[in-house]
């Protein structure tokens, strides 16, 4: 891990993810809803870096995203929990590298972030009838989770491969996890 955060690809990719969150490119949207680029980055990072650094990265991403958004919801708790959970999964099982597994984890993670939004919306309610808000929020939650789940096998797998290789090398292991 010490070597992971020192690698430029880690910082550059995190910066690109923030730019993507800000730009929200319209060519990767479904009915106007973008994927959760942060989840696509946080998932492989946490799997490689472990629970502590995963939660720390989640905290950092959550704070940045809160700053970039309209600041009536917070994303910090959801990202910290996801970073911790995925970090534990990565520690327990090194076999989470298949497209299906990453897609499913990204789908669950994005759904979890959406559920925390939904909870906060219902908590604040904005004095608007809940049915309208819930319909919009459920639609956004499902679309974003699906899109993120579909993109995870492409983006997260690539990032995981790059970071795992670097992490194993830094720990004195080869790419199959055996000591040299």
């Amino acid at each position: 891990m010490r070597n992971l955060h020192q690698r430029s690809i880690c910082w550059v990719s995190a910066f690109v993810v923030i730019l993507f969150e800000l730009a929200s490119p319209s060519f990767i949207t479904i009915s106007g809803v973008s994927p959760s680029w942060s989840v696509l980055w946080l998932l492989p990072f946490s799997l490689v870096a472990g629970p502590f650094f995963g939660a720390f990265a989640g905290l950092c991403f959550g704070l940045v995203l809160d700053g970039l958004s309209l600041s009536y919801f917070t994303q910090v708790p959801a990202f910290v929990i996801l970073g911790w959970w995925w970090g534990n999964l990565g520690r327990r099982s090194t076999s989470i590298e298949r497209s299906w597994s990453l897609g499913l984890l990204a789908w669950i993670g994005t759904g979890f972030v959406g559920l925390t939004f939904l909870f906060q919306i219902n908590l604040t309610s904005f004095e608007v009838p809940g049915a309208l808000l819930n319909a919009w929020a459920l639609n956004t939650l499902l679309v974003q989770a699906m899109l993120t789940g579909l993109l995870a096998p492409l983006i997260s797998t690539w990032l995981l491969t790059v970071w795992r290789r670097g992490s194993f090398i830094s720990l004195g292991q080869n790419s199959k996890g055996f000591m040299k």
Binding site: A23, S24, T29, G32, S34, S69, L70, T140
Partner: peptide, 13 residues
Amino acid sequence: ISRTTKGWWQKLE
């Protein structure tokens, strides 16, 4: 320079 008119945040930059 950036727009998010759908999703969780409806905003323009």
